[in-house]
Amino acid sequence: MSKLKSIEELQKIRQAAKDNLDLRSTAESEDRIIIRVGMATCGIASGARTTMNAIVDELREQNITNVSVTQTGCMGYCAEEPLVEVVFKDKPSVIYGHVDAQRGREIVNEHIKNGRLLQNAIITKSFEKID
């Protein structure tokens, strides 16, 4: 490590370091978007892990920081695995089926970034939770 010689250099290294910590601050922020990947045995068998890593990677590449990627158990549509659910605060959630790495990246670029749903991949536009 070389010595920081100005406030600009400090800001630069802070920014780089911030990316890693965003995972934690995002989880505690109010306006976060959640992407859930179905990772039960069926999901994992059909490649959910690759999908998840692709999504995390794309988010980082696009510099999107208000999204938490978490995994969840079986979502019930095993035939359509890998499944990905996108939850915007105060909006019904959207579930996509057959999400491979490619489609995972599309979700990030279209749905998260531009607010456009990938119509052909949606399983059901919303489902109500019974809490």
Partner: peptide
């Protein structure tokens, strides 16, 4: 309980040394 105290990068990301600057 939020950062790794042995890694100055985590501290910097949590706004460490910003007040000094």
């Amino acid at each position: 309980g939020f950062i790794n105290p042995e890694d100055i990068n985590e501290c910097l990301a949590a706004d460490g040394y910003q007040a000094l600057a």
